[in-house]
């Protein structure tokens, strides 16, 4: 079943230096339960596309549906959880209270909020940190808390905009492994923006390679890798072949631009 469907999507920003075409003719279907990575150089529109899905930007052409609704209807129906590059935890709230904030806004009862908060914190292995303030946690832990918050209200779609972009390689590897496990357990449709080729190949069932000026899709790769992926799958020939194809796609996209 198709969860997200984009048909010849266009988006032009009007800036002081004249119009900038951020997205051009994007056509893409994302099926339920897929893990789709968007990879490409800066300015290729990968974040913009994610923001369109989240109804944080409005496309200027084409059609986009999220679970059969317009993006804005989907937003109001709380169809997705969004994880930004910065963890975006409010510093005056403890981790637990940061996670219950969206639940509070959505009108969950107090007991339900507590129960859900405990559950998602357990999911990201932070159950001991509910009463800590964000600054008492490392960057990786903050990002896990941010993911827990996005999971707390059981949205079917998870949108992640370079969530691990600011973290070091070691922490990133661990979080990638955890995210993959989380995805297998929850089976959420996930859209994931990244700069990293290994990260994209390791995580995704589908990789969308994008190129800039104007932002467009250069290649869509359906990953042949199995759903069970230990970290050392990254040394297998299959993995390297996919990574190679992503790299080729990126290079061609840059040459065409």
């Amino acid at each position: 079943m198709t969860t997200i469907s984009a048909q010849s999507l266009d988006l032009t920003f009007h800036t002081g230096d004249g119009p900038v075409q951020a997205l051009s003719d994007i056509t893409l279907d994302v099926a339920e339960g897929e893990f789709v990575s968007f990879i490409g150089p800066s300015g290729c529109g990968k974040t913009t596309f994610l923001r369109c899905v989240a109804a944080l930007e409005t496309p200027t052409g084409g059609t986009l549906t999220v679970k059969g609704m317009t993006p804005d209807e989907a937003r109001k129906a709380r169809a997705y959880g969004y994880v930004f590059q910065a963890a975006g935890l409010y510093p005056w709230r403890t981790i637990g209270k940061n996670i219950t904030l969206p639940l509070e806004i959505m009108g969950y009862s107090k007991s339900e909020r507590q129960e859900r908060m405990r559950r998602v914190l357990k999911l990201v292995e932070l159950e001991k940190f509910a009463n800590k303030y964000p600054w008492q946690l490392s960057g990786g832990m903050q990002q896990r808390a941010s993911i827990a918050r996005a999971l707390s209200f059981d949205a079917e779609i998870l949108l992640m905009d370079e969530p691990f972009g600011a973290l070091d390689e070691i922490v990133r590897d661990r979080l990638n492994e955890e995210l993959l496990a989380l995805w297998k357990r929850t089976n959420k449709t996930t859209l994931f923006v990244t700069h990293s080729i290994p990260e994209a190949v390791y995580l995704s069932t589908k990789i969308v390679v994008m190129s800039p000026r104007p932002g467009r899709i250069a290649d869509v790769i359906d990953s042949p890798l199995p759903r069970d992926r230990p970290l050392d799958i990254r040394d297998t020939p299959e993995f390297l072949a996919v990574a190679h194809r992503v790299r080729e796609g990126l290079r061609e996209g840059m040459e065409a631009a």
């Binding site: 944080l56 969004y82 930004f84 590059q85 975006g88 409010y90 904030l101 806004i105």
Partner: peptide, 14 residues
């Protein structure tokens, strides 16, 4: 508040 903090509120339809 940073733009992303405000965006977060918007994603929750606050």
């Amino acid at each position: 508040p940073a733009p992303s903090d405000l965006d977060l509120m918007r994603t929750w339809n606050a």
